[in-house]
Amino acid sequence: MATLFRWPGNWDPFAGLRVMQRELERLSGRGGFGEGRNIGGGVFPPVNVYNGPAELVVECEVAGVKREDVDLSITGETLVVKGVKHPAGATEEKAESDIRYQRCERGSGEFSRTIVLPDKVDPDRISASLIDGILTVRLPKSQAALPKKINVK
């Protein structure tokens, strides 16, 4: 029985469902910009990736998430942003089920985003900052990814 429910590696049994939910949210105009003019994706934080001459910049919108609740890691060219968005009343020392919501749009829970970077980066020189609910990660490109001038003899 136990072997039946052991998922190989880090395969996520709900990944397919989550992709479908994301697509439905996108279709209904929520989380995207354009039709809905909403910002923020509930517990699925939107990401910007910029490709500069010497560095990559990744921005992640995590409004209301504290610095200690964000977990950032990099493996090769894969950057993973994990975090927890606590429910609104968590500071009130109450369980979430006790809160009488009149409106609950922000959503809460754990989130994880995997970003495959378009270039090789130097993992030792990465810097990250969380200011006003926006996580900015600066990833300097590794020497192997920078263009090299070749002298023609």
Binding site: F33, G36, R37, N38, I39, G40, G42, A88, G89, E92, K94, I99, R100, Y101, Q102, R103, C104, E105, R106, G107
Partner: peptide, 15 residues
Amino acid sequence: GEDAFTPLVDIFEQA
């Protein structure tokens, strides 16, 4: 107007 985002909100009542 269409240039402004509508921020997501939570509204709840304290004890």
